[in-house]
Every structure is written in structure tokens, then in C-alpha cells.
Simulated assay, not measured.
Amino acid sequence: MQPSWKEVSLSDLPLREDLKSQHAYGAPQLDMPVCLNVNENPYPPSPSLVEHIATAVANAARQANRYPDRDFAELRSHLAAYLTHDTGVMVDASSIWAANGSNEVIQQIFQAFGGPGRSALAFTPAYPMYDEYCRTTFTHLHTLPRTGNFMLDLNQAIDSIREHQPSVVLLTSPNNPTGTALPVDDIRAILDIAPGVVVVDEAYAEFRRHGVRSAVTLLPDHPRLVVTRTLSKAFKFAGGCVGYCACASAIIEALKLVRLPYHLSVFTQAAACAALVARDEMLSQVEAIKAERDATVIWLRSQGLAVADSDANFVMFGKFADRHRVWSGLLRHGVLVREAGPPEYLRVSIGTAAEMDEFRTALLAVMASV
């Protein structure tokens, strides 16, 4: 028998005034045959890798009565080794920090460097969570629009930084939702004049095209640079929800001032270490996803659609007079994409070849009916 609880609504609670008009962030979670809306890697771990991760978690469970390593030394060592391999820059474990997704890492950055009386600068269209980081830390957010091809107007960015003196500058490369990557020279120019920390969000960096450099290559000469990454995308480890950053050790000391104690569980640490040990297998489909992305860009453009260049595992496309009608039409065909970016655009994550075939078939049918 269910207990009887007195009913209460959100309006009955002493909620902060600035939260009363807000809505929780999140993509629609719908059970569809083809889900291409949250930029996951569509390929699951192999049975042998599942067993490898399960064994690591089972071993960790033997000491679950003890708190985990608060500074997760083993995980930081694995992340440093991977980042060194990926970028060619020698990264030490002391320059690595991790949390429950790169969202938590960036939130900690705002807790440490943002706050009342301080500001941040971002470039739109941008990841909607940037607004939330600022709202929850009482950091004022300045925004500048991207150019017609979704890049930065560097002169405008430099002028804005000089005017507003932001404590945090948010650069996203590749950018969500557009997929566009920033030239390293633009990032360097901003680092040269920014008074606070510069965060380069590289959640999709493993999908960048050949020749596109990571901002990690700038770390040795720029002590206020923070490069954030995640295992949720290319590593097909979204369920593990582990993100990390590379930066000067002094910045990590600042993040320790705001992190919750033991914020990474023993199970999270064990599973992430196991995934990084098997990084070659975890990343084994990245090239296939990149090829499918490039083919999708070509096909969408052949249909007369506007498509942003993408260095990520998704593609933003349009322009639609009524994108919600197109989104709904795709949903009726069992294909879930995302209403993201400018109002005329949709965003599709890159799935398996079979899933992308279904997407193309569905989109053609919808476009013929609108």
C-alpha cells in the first residue's frame, strides 16, 4: 500500500526567485527505433570489454566500505597517458582533473573563477549549459554571435574581452551545436589578451578532421588555459559519465577548493580506468563515424540544405521554415533528432550506417510532405 503524502507543487516551495521561470536542461528521452539526438557513440562495448569493465568494478566492490581515493591518482595517470598519445604533448598526471562528466568540471571552474560581480563570455549558438553554469554561480554571461559560417569574429571577440574583462572565456571546439572547430591561432590570440581563465571545451575533439589541432598543444605556454574533454562521446562511455580537463596544476588546486569530497566513486574510477586501458577498442569506430559524418554532410547538401562544416560526431542542417514540423515528421518515422542551434536548424547525431540510412529515408519522406 502506497503511503499518503501531502501534495505540494513547485510554487509552494521557497524556491530562489531566479529559478522560478527556468526549465531543467535535457534532451527528450523517447523510446524510438533510431535515436540520433544526444551525440553518443552508437556502437556498444564488445562482450569482452564489458567483461573487462565488470571485473574491474567487481574488484572495486571488495573495498566499497572505504571511501575512494579522493584525488583519483590512477585515473589521472591513465588520462594523462591518453592525452599525451592523442595530442603529442607531454601531459603529466598533476595537470589532469576529472569529475562526473565535463559538465561537472566546467561547473567547478565557474564555482572557482566565476561568481557575483564576475562575468563570462561565450559565443552563440553555444551549448545551453553555459547559461546554467552562469546562472547557478551568479556569474554574468556576455555573448557574441558567431559569423555566418559559425566561426568567431576574432576582432569582435578581442574588443569584447577588453571591454568586459571576463573572468571566464568559453571557447568550444568543435562547437556544439554547429560542429565547427576553431583555429588554434584564434585561441592563442584570445589567450594573449584574456584577463581570466580561458576554457576550451573539446568534448568532441576525437572526431576532428585531419590537421585540426587540439588546444592542448597550447598548454605549455598558457597557464590560464583549461582544456576540457570527456569519455562520453568518442569513448562510447556516456553511461560512465566521466569528464576531465588538462591545465596548470595551480588551477587544479583552485578546483579542489570547490569540489565535493570524494566526488568520483570507487566504481566510476575503476570503470573509467578499465575503459582507458582498452582505449584502442573503445575508440575503434571513430574513423567509421567520421566517414559517415562526412558522407552525411555531402548528402544533406545534395538535397539543397544548408549544412555547417563539422569536426564532431553530429551535423547541424537546415534551413527550415518550421523545424518543429520536420522534427515531428521524423519522429513519426521512428527517427529522433534534436531541435538545436538557430531556429531554422536541426542537429543529427551520427549513428551506424543502418541508422543513417533510416534517417535519410525518413527525411526525404518528410521533406516531400511539407
Rank of each mutant, 00 (worst) to 15 (best):
T361I: 12
A250Q: 07
L364G: 13
L331H: 11
Y43W: 15
M90N: 07
V197P: 01
E104R: 11
R229I: 01
H23G: 01
T84M: 09
A288C: 08
S173M: 06
Q108C: 02
V326L: 01
R16D: 15
G304N: 02
E344W: 12
T268L: 13
A295N: 07
R135D: 06
F72M: 08
P28C: 11
A248Y: 04
S4N: 13
Y130E: 04
P343L: 14
M32Q: 15
N176E: 05
L49G: 00
R118P: 00
A288M: 09
G351A: 07
R259E: 14
P177I: 12
E132D: 06
T172Y: 00
F320M: 07
L264W: 05
E253W: 02
V370L: 10
A80I: 08
E132L: 14
H142K: 09
D357I: 07
R66H: 04
A254S: 08
I106Y: 01
Y133W: 15
P174R: 08
A321I: 09
P42H: 07
A312I: 10
V57K: 10
S102G: 01
H164N: 12
D221I: 10
R301N: 05
P220C: 09
E287Q: 07
R66D: 01
A272V: 06
V168D: 03
A362V: 03
R188I: 03
N149S: 11
Y25H: 13
L154H: 04
L154K: 10
E202D: 07
K319Y: 07
C245G: 03
L276N: 02
S48A: 15
Y82K: 05
A61Q: 12
T84C: 02
P183F: 14
Q107T: 07
E292S: 08
T84E: 03
H210N: 05
E17A: 15
A238L: 14
R360E: 07
P261Y: 13
H23E: 14
V258K: 10
A93Q: 12
D185L: 14
L191C: 06
P220T: 11
A362D: 02
S102F: 05
D153A: 09
I193N: 02
T172S: 12
Q285E: 11
L336D: 06
G240I: 04
S46M: 14
D69E: 13
V335M: 06
I109Q: 04
T124Y: 09
A272D: 02
N59L: 15
T178D: 00
A189G: 00
N176I: 09
T361E: 06
D92W: 02
V366D: 06
M367N: 06
V227I: 11
A120Q: 05
A60V: 05
S21T: 15
T124F: 02
L331Y: 10
F359D: 02
T217F: 08
I190A: 03
Y345F: 15
I96R: 01
A312Q: 05
S94T: 14
A272H: 04
S9G: 11
F123W: 04
T268D: 04
M129G: 00
L231H: 04
H52C: 06
I298A: 10
C241M: 13
D18C: 14
L305D: 03
D221T: 15
A60E: 09
L276S: 01
